[in-house]
Amino acid sequence: MEVQITINGTTHTSEVEPRTLLVHHIRDDLGLTGTNVGCDTSSCGACTIHIDGQSAKSCTLLAVQANGADLTTIEGMASGDGLHPMQQAFMENHGLQCGYCTPGMVMAATSFLNENADPSEAEVREGLEGNLCRCTGYHNIVKSVLDCASKGA
């Protein structure tokens, strides 16, 4: 069926099979490969994007469910001026290593700060409970998010 989805400000009209997972539509059909797939069970959060401003796991949604929605992926975060403050915080605090979980982490973290602008360390950890990372031990990810929050960005 035909879906019309706005991603990072651009509206795409496409024909998809109803069973097409949103993450595959974004990656395979629209070529936005920054959003990753890390698991089959909605556990890892590598596929996290924003739907109408809120974090969501795009591997657990059908593309048809996003028909008419406004999506942001990692490709929509940096602007012409440079990295998004959360991306910048991850860079400055060595919040990534292999980078595979990173787009999902950044999207989850920005959504989290939208809902809790001044979190404690424990709240950041709970807020990222749905995003797994195997490289960093989370220490520097948590530090990155707290750093970003402290700068009020």
Binding site: S42, G45, T48, I51, Q54, S55, A56, K57, T60, L61, A108, S111, F112, E115, G127, E129, G130, N131
Partner: peptide, 9 residues
Amino acid sequence: VGDPSVRHR
């Protein structure tokens, strides 16, 4: 329930 992304949906 679940995690924040799950709770959003």
